[in-house]
Design a protein around this nucleic acid. Structure first.
Lengths: 337, 337
DNA sequence: CTTGGCACTCGGGAACACAGAGTGCCAGAG
DNA sequence: CTCTGGCACTCTGTGTTCCCGAGTGCCAAG
């Protein structure tokens, strides 16, 4: 159905269209790529490709433009991820290495990715659910109020005010803190609910009401924060791309974390790259927009995802290369901190 | 120089231009506002206003458009801040009340403001420098590594990894923590450097090297974080406004915190509203953009600023009303938490 | 000082023509 | 059966011209 030459033609169309942003015609193709055949032949192939929905013409007698289906084929079978240059790799390393805490790692990552791809970058904070408790801290704030601070092994810190049912002395707080930490240290967050059930038994009866309040807030924190946090950068690149169609939709999507998270998707292996092209993605505001995403994590566990959002006519090989590289480096940095 | 009628004409021009986004002519003015004079008279006044730089015409024989100077006069002398409707006030209250921690307060505030004004909203996190230490926590992470957590009375939490020069037992950490908190509790952040100087004396000699490392990181945290954190929302509103000119510049400014912070300004009394119009603001990418900002805080201290960023031709009375109201409510919420 | 009248200017939209790029199809060559 | 060159046809985008209308500035009269 699609012989090699037709595939070569499709590849050439995608490449040319991506670089020129203009419908590409048979003559231009024959000139720029040495396919060894005449424009007329190419026209025949184009007709076939159009027949099957890989390309389309904006108007009769304009050049051809790849369809979403065409890009899909290109990404799946016609392109190779393009690795970054040595200079770029070094730049990534030094740029990310300077970060001092999780917030800054995420911030730098997202900027880096935006700059590298000249598109909008999105980074999801490392998931709480897959990490474990490093430390729980209870800080007296007022007589009947404490701040609960939860520190995870991914460096994330969650904080919450708690109003207590009764005043409680500092040494009792200290005891409570000790017991909590003894129980929870190293405990996976998903195990916290069960693990925490033992806590009251280990406390003097008088402290149990207070403990119950604190524990319920702790559990609540875990549940609520399951809804993850996201950072993005590079929106200025949207204005540069002549992206005018859909700009609105993209900006809207960016402000809806829920949508954004679904867009990043939840998939397969670590550093496996997901590409969603135009209409393939589940949000109507993003017609004309593609998403290139990958998971990142330390060791072999995927902690969260990151990706890039740009016009369907983007340079997939380069973008995928950048996303993959950044995902790997972030994983390394997280593992080392 | 500018009699009352000329001022009235200027006001009418601003109002009409804001609502129609088209240059306004003498006839239209005479029709819509009952100024009690004929178009010809208005033309004379317009000539005078133009002479003095308050309005301009895009082309000979088009209507007039206010200049930055014209908006300035309008804001200073011709308009009154428009209070929010009761429904809006209630909406603010209920929307902000549900927030559980500082991050969420800021997040909700910025969304609220964006929605209320239909523009881009910016909120600066409560300043570290003007708050005080509530608690310092040192959490052992590995043998020679701890996490330093600083909690301020505004609910902000700063975290930092510290690599120690030597291993140290948990009880020595506990002692260090106790001493630190004894010294620093309630201490204004700006006093921390002096206060902290006493700490080593109160420790056994063997702990001083470790303490020195930790203290230096603590001080560093305070200095670096002086560069403040910012959140924004509502960029989708940019696309709606026919703002095409300068959209790029605005998006760029939003990604440069440094610029953004300078834009919010550092000014006068709490809930005092600052308006920077077009060329008045210190960043060239924002030609055509105005900023309406106010400080917010609990009690009488300004903790940080928030504001809105929109086209020079915005509805200043309404925008200022929204900014003022939100600033006040956030102040209340912060005071109460 | 205000007003009506008047001539003038200029931007923007409609109508039109035209060049150029690109297509589809066909008949002939390999 | 596939490729190629030729040819007629179809568009879009661009440039030109033209005209209308909104708006102005100025002037003379009330």
């Amino acid at each position: 159905m699609l012989d090699d030459r037709k595939l070569a033609v499709l590849r050439a169309i995608v490449e040319d269209y991506v670089s020129t942003n203009e419908p590409v015609g048979s003559k231009a193709l024959a000139d720029r790529h040495n396919l060894g055949v005449s424009p007329a032949t190419i026209r025949n192939d184009m007709a076939a490709l159009e027949e099957q929905g890989y390309i389309a013409q904006p108007h009769t007698s304009a050049g051809r433009v790849p369809t979403d289906k065409g890009y899909r084929l290109f990404v799946d079978r016609l392109s190779q991820i393009k690795p970054l240059s040595g200079a770029e790799r070094r730049a990534i390393e030094t740029f990310l290495a300077g970060a001092v805490d999780l917030d800054e790692i995420v911030m730098r990552t997202v900027r880096l990715l935006a700059q590298l791809t000249r598109q909008v970058a999105v980074v999801q904070y490392p998931s709480l659910t897959r990490s474990s408790v490093r430390h729980v801290e209870i800080v007296p704030i007022a007589e009947r109020r404490v701040m609960l601070v939860l520190i995870t092994n991914t460096g994330r810190v969650e904080q919450r005010m708690v109003d207590l049912p009764e005043a409680i002395a500092d040494d009792r707080i200290a005891n409570l803190r000790a017991v909590l930490n003894a129980c929870l240290d190293g405990c996976g967050l998903s195990q916290v609910p069960e693990t925490v059930a033992d806590v009251p038994e280990r406390l003097p009866a008088e402290d149990r009401p207070v403990a119950a309040t604190i524990l319920s807030v702790l559990l609540e924190t875990l549940v609520e924060r399951h809804e993850e946090k996201i950072a993005f950068a590079g929106t200025a690149n949207l204005a540069a791309a002549d992206f005018s169609v859909g700009l609105r939709g993209v900006l809207e999507a960016l402000e809806e974390q829920v949508v954004l998270i679904r867009l990043l998707g939840e998939t397969g292996g670590l550093s496996d790259i997901t590409v969603r092209i135009g209409s393939e993605n589940p949000y109507s505001g993003l017609r004309g927009t593609s998403i290139v995403a990958a998971g990142y994590g330390s060791g072999d566990r995927e902690l969260a995802r990151l990706g890039v959002l740009g016009p369907t006519r983007m340079d997939y090989p380069v973008t995928m290369g950048a996303v993959r590289a950044v995902a790997r480096y972030v994983g390394q940095i997280l593992a080392g901190s």
